[in-house]
Write a protein that binds this DNA or RNA. Structure first.
Length: 603
DNA sequence: TGCACTATGAGGTCACAC
DNA sequence: GTGTGACCTCATAGTGCA
């Protein structure tokens, strides 16, 4: 969208854009629908169970398996011939019409709000949503059904192709771009089910379509040939069903001020303590997601949408300790009766670093540090500052003060001697972030890596405050799935809360970080089991099912996906959620969906 | 090859003045 | 409402050295 447009203008444009989006992603809606109906077919539900009627042509059976009625299929073939795409389009349109008989096409469909409680089709919407919610989970049944559909389809197409090629062929024939299918297969792994693949592609498409950083000509293209109001409407419902609110929201999520989320222990400002969590977001398991608050515009809308449309809780850790850390958290935890870790950490620079007090000049008003990042100020810079301040007997002139303060704020420099500033040491990072001293020290980790790992971690006191509500709920300990664990901020927070860690499955790419967590686990004499993986893609449905079978499910899924492509400090590749690293967010969603699905099935 | 060090703004929000 | 400037940001790539 042209950012120079006025808000009013942009609203109007939005509808057009979204309308286009609806059309372009009809392939997705098609696929979702296939999955839905496929499940009915295998479960022997009514008409759809007739999918295996002998004597039907393979072409017809393919659609029967998908759950369409013979009558509809015959009608669609009569109108379009035996062209899979056209028949499928026709069947979807027919289905939409059948499902909403009372609905009349709008005179201006492209302007009709897709999420409107006053919409005459609201009843239809709800029914439709209910259906889709039921089918939305990735139960093995639904996987089996979709895979059955695939087998049926590829049997017709070719029996000489490899499994991978068959999958690509099948999804390509469903309308997914081959390139996106290949990427999805690469990212989700060779064992990924069709459901996982289609959700991954859908997630990427939706995010890309809304990415304000992508030029319009790079966004997913329209499929004008098979558009139509009913299909667009259907797509809206599907999107709405997956994530009820935000896809076409005019308002983007704004950061609160003060940034205290649903409350912090040190502020008397009354916070919002009442919130509504969508039913489908309820646990088990509880989940907790974290990332940088100051992400590019629209990123938190997307994140929220993929996490059940739960409102993010934006919290600055400066309300917990002496350093700022503005982060957004999306979770399904209760927010009442939280309590902080004790003892309360020092909340000012002077309290946290008492030796600096002696040298702190009166013209440096800082009482809090800025966000601890992955890099520190250079020795050359601190030398320049020393020379600049030394040149004056008393207080330096304002221009020098401004230069020094700007650099001190930027690099979190503290006064360690007369006219002498220095970056924080790694152990000071540890203390400020709530980790035990020497948590990242030794064991083969370099100083540079310590800064990097610490700069990427949780602020333990902040996270512990949010997790504190779990203590009474799990007196016998918890099973935790920790994604993108880093140096174990979540584990340390739970441990410091006194919550027993029965089983922890930790996924962390960095070997250095895995070693840190393993070392901490052993040094704190944990009695539970720590299982680690180096890649989230290793956690497919089978692996998760094995893990869940072995210890009865997860109580908490926690993690913050990589922020590299979201962080303001990144001058090179701030590409948003579609960035190379930050797109791993979709793996968080994928795994959360899988865990919920497997656990609900086992219940 | 690994580590330490260094230089490198853009993008977004907010307060404030007009 | 709009323009302006201050402020802040879980980073990356290149270089030199052991």
């Amino acid at each position: 969208m042209d950012k120079h447009l006025s808000e009013e203008d942009s609203d109007n444009i939005d509808w057009d854009t979204e309308d286009e989006l609806e059309i372009q992603d009809t392939t997705f809606s098609s696929c979702r629908d296939l999955r839905t109906n496929g499940q009915y077919a295998i479960s022997g539900d009514g008409e759809a169970s007739s999918s295996s009627v002998p004597g039907q042509s393979t072409f017809i059976q393919k659609f029967l398996v998908m759950g369409f009625s013979e009558e509809s299929i015959a009608k669609a073939i009569e109108q379009n011939g035996e062209n899979s795409d056209l028949v499928l389009d026709a069947l979807l349109t027919l289905k939409a019409i059948e499902d909403s008989p009372e609905e009349q096409p709008s005179a201006s469909p492209h302007l009709e709000p897709c999420i409107n409680s006053d919409d005459s089709s609201s009843e239809y919407n709800e029914n439709f949503l209910d259906d889709v919610y039921e089918e939305d989970s990735w139960s093995s049944d639904s996987d089996y059904c979709t895979n059955s559909a695939k087998q049926c389809y590829v049997k017709e197409e070719s029996s000489s192709l490899s499994e991978k090629e068959q999958t690509i062929l099948f999804l390509a024939n469903m309308g997914y771009p081959v390139e996106e299918v290949s990427i999805a297969m690469e990212r989700c792994g060779p064992e990924a089910s069709l459901a996982e693949l289609t959700d991954f592609i859908c997630a990427a498409q939706m995010a890309r379509a809304e990415d304000p950083y992508l030029p319009e000509d790079v966004k997913p293209k329209l499929n004008h040939g098979s558009g139509g109001y009913k299909k667009r409407k259907m797509f809206n419902q599907l999107c709405k069903s997956k994530k009820p609110r935000a896809i076409f929201d005019e308002e983007t999520i704004r950061l609160p001020k003060p940034m205290i989320g649903f409350g912090v222990p040190t502020e008397s400002v009354p916070a919002i303590v009442r919130r509504t969590i969508p039913e489908q977001a309820f646990g088990p398991p509880f989940f907790y997601y974290e990332n940088v608050a100051l992400a590019p515009k629209g990123v938190w809308d997307t994140i929220s949408r993929f996490l059940y449309d739960i409102e993010p809780e934006f919290v600055d850790s400066k309300y917990f300790c002496a350093t700022a850390r503005k982060r957004g958290y999306i979770h399904n935890l209760p927010v009442e009766n939280r309590f902080p870790l004790l003892p309360l950490p020092p909340r000012t620079i002077n309290e946290a670093l008492p030796l600096t007090k002696k040298w702190w000049p009166s013209w440096d008003p800082r009482t809090k540090l800025n966000c601890l990042q992955t890099a520190i100020g250079s020795a050359r810079l601190t030398d320049r500052i020393r020379k600049a301040v030394e040149a004056f007997d008393g207080e330096p002139p304002m221009r020098v003060q401004k230069f020094v303060l700007d650099q001190c704020r930027k690099w979190n420099l503290v006064w360690v001697g007369r006219n002498k500033v220095a970056p924080l040491e790694p152990d000071e990072f540890e203390m400020l972030l709530g980790f035990p001293k020497n948590h990242t020290r030794g064991g083969g980790i370099s100083r540079t890596d310590r800064y990097k790992s610490l700069g990427n971690s949780f602020q333990v006191d902040t996270v512990a405050y949010h997790l504190s509500v779990l203590k009474d709920m799990f007196p016998n300990g918890m099973n935790v799935l920790s994604l993108f664990s880093g140096i174990g901020g979540a584990e340390v927070a739970l441990y410091r809360l006194g919550i027993q860690l029965n089983n922890v499955v930790s996924v962390e790419k960095s070997e250095v970080n895995r070693n840190i967590v393993r070392s901490w686990w052993e040094q704190t004499n944990q009695r539970g089991n720590l299982i680690d993986f180096d890649d989230v893609q290793q956690l497919n449905g089978d692996r998760l099912e094995q893990l869940i079978d072995s210890f009865g499910g997860f109580d908490l899924l926690i993690g913050g996906s990589p922020c590299n492509n979201l962080a303001g400090s990144n001058r090179v590749s701030r590409d948003g959620l579609e960035g190379k690293e930050s797109s791993l967010f979709y793996d968080y969603v994928r795994i959360l969906d899988l865990v919920k699905s497997i656990m609900s099935r086992q219940r």
